[in-house]
Amino acid sequence: MTTTAAPTDEFNGVPVAKLRGTVAKLTENPELAKFEFSAKTSWIEGTASESTIYEWFGAGADQVHAEAYTAKTDHPTLGHGHGPTPHEYVLHALTSCIMAGVATTAANREIELTDITATVKGKMDVQGILGIDPDVRNGFSQVDVVVDVKGNAPQSDLDALITASAKRSAVFDLLTNPVSVDISSAN
């Protein structure tokens, strides 16, 4: 059952040898592991805006994505239908980050996946963001994710991929742990 991926092999669509090579390279040289990600956001109208995500820095050099990706947000009742809310993007970011982790961890463990689906729900008491009750927080009070992983391994091994993925997930970490955020004027 065990097969070792050749350098060009993809497993679950993950280039395993490249992944392992990157880990080895960054372990050797931790300076190369210092990345920076960015987005540029422009106001469209009302509660709507559009972000462009293109440039990033990593492995010691400026990098760009394959193309300039865009994402629009708006408000569901006060807006004009340009897109989902920003905090829904956070839910999307969480499940997709966990999913990427499930796929890479499975590839690393040489487990073939046939399907992954996830549902995420974020509870929010909007008395916070509307300024009605200062004791209510603005953000989600509880986030629940249900992940369904299918593949050629016992279900307990497939479920282990979920906890392992969350453990190494950037977005899971961002949601569960505080980070220092500095917002300042450009002028």
């Binding site: 282990a160 392992a164 453990k167």
Partner: peptide, 8 residues
């Protein structure tokens, strides 16, 4: 992230 550590 406590619940994930416990599940793990």
């Amino acid at each position: 992230g406590l619940a994930n550590h416990c599940a793990s």
